[in-house]
């Protein structure tokens, strides 16, 4: 049993491979999360324009990418784009797929956050001469983010977990590397180690999230 799942020799041998995978997972996360946040912020700000020419396409966009499974989107980009002469590679495809998918989710969260800030805040800021964009940057957004912080973190957690999808398009992230090591050693130990690494990576975030949620519950 120990030899099958917790084989120390294999752990030692697989560790450098897994470490490289962890590096890529982290790199992917720090690329994809800011990208998704940026996309989400753009969507949330566009949603404030009242023109139907912006609203309807925006709603369709958000609905589409929330309904579209990210794995399917990823494979479509990876397998489909080369047919029209665009080769993005694994990393590029994951980045774009996640930008589209998680941007839509971050966008909805931020929009709810912005809506939760009372209009009196905007009126007070505008009455002192702040422009609309200054008001958004200094008065509305800081409060909006604070109001939806647990949701933003929860989504971020999902995004980091979803980076494992990169393994499907041969992106050498943690899961992909673990499976490589597994097939080389004919032993599931690397997968177990990868699982533990994911846990170690995400558990502090999960703890922090619960604390934030409990605090929000008490305050609310």
């Amino acid at each position: 049993m120990l030899d099958t799942f917790f084989n120390v020799e294999i752990m030692k041998a697989a560790w450098p491979i897994l470490l490289a995978g962890l590096g890529n997972t982290l790199l992917l996360s720090v690329t994809v999360v800011p990208l998704g946040l940026l996309g989400g912020l753009m969507l949330a700000l566009l949603a404030r324009l009242h023109s139907p020419w912006v609203r309807w396409p925006l709603m369709a966009w958000v609905d589409f990418f929330r309904a579209f499974p990210p794995l399917v989107l990823l494979i479509l980009l990876y397998a489909g784009l080369p047919f029209i002469g665009i080769e993005l590679g694994g990393f590029g495809c994951v980045a774009i797929a996640f930008f589209l998918n998680t941007g839509a989710y971050y966008g909805e969260i931020l929009r709810a956050g912005i809506d939760s800030v009372p209009t009196g805040q905007t009126e007070a800021a505008r009455s002192t001469g702040l422009s609309a964009s200054q008001t958004m940057a200094w008065v509305v957004l800081p409060q909006a983010v604070r109001n939806v912080l647990p949701d933003l973190m929860s989504n971020t957690l999902e995004v980091v977990k979803l980076t494992a999808l990169g393994s499907v398009v041969a992106m050498p992230e943690l899961l992909f590397q673990a499976r490589q090591a597994q097939s080389l050693t004919y032993n599931p130990t690397p997968i177990v180690v990868a699982a533990l690494v994911y846990f170690a990576l995400l558990w502090p975030l999960v703890r922090l999230l619960s604390r934030l949620e409990n605090r929000a519950l008490r305050a609310g």
Binding site: Q121, A124, A125, S127, T128, G129, L130, V139, P142, Q143
Partner: peptide
């Protein structure tokens, strides 16, 4: 925005920035 600098306003609900 420039004009509003010269016109101060105080609201019923204070509307201070809580953060």
């Amino acid at each position: 925005n420039a004009a509003r600098r010269r016109i101060g306003m105080v609201f019923q609900g204070f509307n201070l920035y809580p953060h």
